[in-house]
């Protein structure tokens, strides 16, 4: 049964939205299907305030210290970090490939901007993912409406600013529909 939504505690600073933190790790040798992906998703917890966020954050392993094929997903409460979720199925994501060693800092910059509503695109942001891989790490930011070019450009500009990456960093946008079609998971 779904757990009750957390509320900010006394004296805490509420967030505009509640968020859930998820963790997943790919089992070696298994095929990546939507079902196995779903089964590997573990909910770490849901929080409603800045202080509750920091409590979770203090207890999790930093992305750069994770090993193997692992992901953190930070999504608005109620949105499952899957292409098929009704909040995501018309959406897409900005993808930034990071050299090894940058994941923890970039992930923190991204999620602080998201939690603090720095993207200024209303309800468009769904969540963020950091994917730890062997050669490089991948940051992605998911939004609801892939066809809304004005919003996706705005998200890209803010993302560039908050990540503070070199100007030649390549950013790609991919619709979830295309991801479903080519079945590309990282």
């Amino acid at each position: 049964p779904p757990r009750p939504s957390p509320k900010p505690g006394p004296g805490e600073h509420p967030l505009q939205f509640n968020y859930s933190l998820w963790f997943s790790r790919k089992s070696p040798g298994k095929h990546s299907t939507a079902t196995s992906y779903d089964q590997n998703l573990k909910l770490v917890g849901t929080f409603a305030s800045v202080e509750q966020f920091w409590k979770y954050y203090a207890h999790i392993v930093r992305p750069s210290d994770l090993t193997g094929h692992s992901d953190y997903h930070l999504f608005k409460e109620g949105i499952r970090p899957m292409w098929e979720d009704s909040a995501n199925n018309k959406g897409g994501k900005w993808i930034v490939r990071l050299k090894k060693g940058l994941a923890s800092r970039c992930w923190e910059n991204l999620i602080l901007a998201m939690l603090g509503e720095q993207f200024m695109v209303g309800e468009e942001i769904c969540g963020a993912v950091i994917s730890i891989r062997y050669q490089e790490d991948i940051l992605s930011l998911w939004n609801r409406t892939a066809s809304d070019q004005q919003t996706t450009s705005r998200i890209r500009d803010t993302l560039k600013r908050v990540l503070n990456l070199p100007p030649n960093t390549i950013m790609e946008y991919k619709t979830h529909n295309d991801s479903i079609k080519d079945n590309s998971s990282f």
């Binding site: 004296g11 805490e12 600073h13 202080e51 920091w54 409590k55 901007a113 603090g116 509503e117 720095q118």
Partner: peptide
């Protein structure tokens, strides 16, 4: 509804507040 904005500096300040300990 009211938008709740926090900048990075403020969020980092909350990290060290007694409430998060």
């Amino acid at each position: 509804g009211t938008k709740i904005f926090y900048d990075r500096h403020f969020l980092l300040k909350c990290r060290n507040s007694p409430l998060t300990k």
